[in-house]
Design a binder for these strands. Sequence first.
DNA 1: TGAATGATGCACT
DNA 2: GTGCATCATTCAC
Length: 191
Amino acid sequence: VEVEAYGGQGDAASHARFGPTDRNRVMFGPPGVAYVYMVYGMYDCLNVVTDRDGVAGAVLVRAATPLEGIGAMRASRFAQAARRRPSVDPRSEERRIAALPAHRLASGPGLLAAAFGIERSDTGVDLCDARLALHLEPPADDDPPPVGPVRSGPRIGIGYAAEPWRGRPWRFWLAGDRSVSRPDGLRPASR
DNA sequence: TGAATGATGCACT
DNA sequence: GTGCATCATTCAC
């Protein structure tokens, strides 16, 4: 329900801006492949490589609305929290995650990766191969329809990039969906 | 309700 | 050594 587009060497906000490196190499490969990176030392973020082979480009998947597997998402969120925050009492973490409403389980890029159990080792996975555990699917017939129109605005957390890249409206979200990380486009969601 | 801050690993210069 | 495509907690009001 929320994504951001990142370009190649010309996009001053993109990991590909310095050219191919060990970290971003798959961004320059064929489309339909996962690119997962660690941000701020704590969270993994899922991207889908989108441009043709040889041209860097990817879409950051920032948020999702859980429709099924909600219990598995809570378990995965807890496992990730216990692993990454060993100083916090696991029992209190378990209570905190159990109390979260379903629409907050994947309401941000780090949270989404945690809810789906996605890690950096998933980089390079072919997301179009339905035989693999991690893959993309078309909507199911009984999925609820989108709740509102798609809106767009500047990408989040890229203040280091110069204009025009900083202000380019390459963030897209589903208006009215409660899982969007920043419904107003600026401040984090409060519910 | 909102601003400030700490946690934390690693890519990059 | 610097700074991050984040999140949860703390503190002020």
